[in-house]
């Protein structure tokens, strides 16, 4: 049993750097996808949905990847603190932006968009 545990720990020591950096890369690609959504979507309210990909899945995948690469427990605690800060503040900030835009009278686009493929002006 102890032998198996030692083997598992050895395996984890070998595998954690490649797995951590692969997760970091995946999270960064998720961030870029969110940014592409911010560039493509037609109006402000829909852009907000794309921006929240970066805040949720991108941030958590990158932070999990960094936690796998962490040299000691102190770094993991700091990563958990960053995770909580991002997860508590980003919906509040999004709601503040949306509420301010709605109060100022910015009308959202309602109904089906994108029947024609060339009506997204920010696709460049």
């Amino acid at each position: 049993m102890a032998d198996l545990l030692a083997n598992l720990q050895q395996f984890f020591e070998i595998v954690r750097y490649p797995a951590g950096s692969a997760l970091c890369l995946a999270g960064a690609i998720l961030c870029v996808i969110g940014t592409i959504g911010v560039m493509r979507f037609p109006d402000f309210y829909t852009r907000m949905h794309a921006a929240s990909i970066t805040d949720t899945s991108g941030a958590s995948v990158i932070l999990i990847g960094m936690a796998l690469m962490a040299p000691d427990w102190l770094v993991v605690v700091k990563l958990v603190v960053i995770f909580w800060l991002v997860f508590l503040t980003s919906p509040t900030a999004s709601h503040a932006v949306a509420s301010a835009a709605h109060t100022a009278g910015l009308q959202p686009l309602i109904g089906r968009v994108g029947q024609k493929p060339d009506d997204d002006e920010g696709a460049a």
Binding site: V38, A51, A59, L79, I82, V86, S94, V97
Partner: peptide, 15 residues
Amino acid sequence: LAVNSFGTKTVLALG
């Protein structure tokens, strides 16, 4: 919104 998202990305990039 873009500046806020930029800030989140800056946090991740610093890490």
